[in-house]
Amino acid sequence: MLQSMTGFGTARQDGEQYSLTIDIRSLNSKSLDLSIRLPRFLADKEHEIRGIISKNLIRGKVTLNVDYTGGAKGIKTASSINQELLQHYYSELERAADAVGATKTDLFRLALQMPEVIQQGPRTEEEDNQLPVPWETVADLLHEAIHNLNSFRADEGKALTSEIMTYVDRIRILLAEVDKFDPVRLEYIRERIRTHLAEISSSEQFNQSRFEQEMIYFIEKLDIAEEKVRLINHLHYFTETVYLPEPTGKKLAFISQEIGREINTIGSKANDATIQHLVVEMKEELEKIKEQLNNIL
């Protein structure tokens, strides 16, 4: 079954001290064109993230956004109060309050908020290497978002499959019309040949052998039987390929080129106005197919 190349998938995890959301969007592209925006703590995981996406998303212009909200790295560290500096700030604030006659009720709180009064303890190597969100959690969320994106693509693909097969069926109907009018076309050509033969056979310069060779060449040039058979075979192959389980967008594009080649040859060889009109309609349906295949994975 076909899959669309466009889609959206998201996954979210809310922890006690953080919130992590992963969004993946995909648009049309001939290959995998990946753009990633990560929080700083995941910068060294970008290569692994790219590997996961490349393994699970074959084609498309893919945008990944990881949004993290939480404390500074989400990790608590020990802190201490610089007693000497606190006393210095408190004394200065007290003298300033006396000078202007202000109340002293908030002096301690203000002194605590002064620069370098509260000092963070030194971080251990283990703390420095610790992620605010475990990598396993990030990886699980990433796979969930990719799964949701692929589900979206599959749903869109069902609608595209129905639409494309409508165009394929229309080409089959038009080809059946060509097949119906082909005997009429051939009889008209034969009648024209008979008329011309009667006119030129009486000529003294008439060469029977050369005339027969030219007629054989002419009739073969106008014969579209092989093109009709090849076209119906291409349509069958196209239909079988549509329902294969793996992504088939590129293969379907190649088959559609072969379908177009046979339609064009029928049009150039038919030499008949009615069949030419049917060929034009087949080309219109084929263009609709090609347009939709641009969005197929």
Rank of each mutant, 00 (worst) to 15 (best):
R12K: 12
A176N: 15
K73V: 04
N207C: 06
E48L: 15
N150K: 08
D44S: 14
V229K: 07
T103V: 11
S80R: 13
G60Q: 01
T248Q: 13
P132Y: 08
D23G: 02
G15H: 04
A198L: 12
V100D: 03
K104L: 06
L131C: 03
T166M: 09
G71T: 10
Q208R: 07
Q257T: 07
E126A: 15
F254N: 03
I193L: 15
I24S: 09
F218H: 04
L32M: 07
N28T: 02
N129D: 09
V184P: 00
E291N: 12
K73N: 12
I75H: 04
P39S: 03
A96C: 03
D33M: 02
F108G: 00
D182C: 02
V168C: 06
A198P: 00
S35Y: 13
L86M: 15
R190G: 00
E199F: 01
L160G: 00
L34M: 05
D23Q: 14
P183W: 07
L131D: 09
A102I: 08
A139H: 05
F206T: 02
H234S: 02
K250N: 07
H47T: 14
S26L: 05
T195M: 10
P122K: 12
S162R: 10
I36A: 11
F211C: 09
Y18N: 02
L278W: 06
H277A: 15
T274L: 13
G74A: 12
I275Y: 08
A273G: 01
F254W: 08
D223G: 07
I171M: 11
I224M: 08
V168E: 03
V62W: 03
Q119C: 12
S29D: 12
I58F: 06
A97D: 01
V62F: 05
T248P: 01
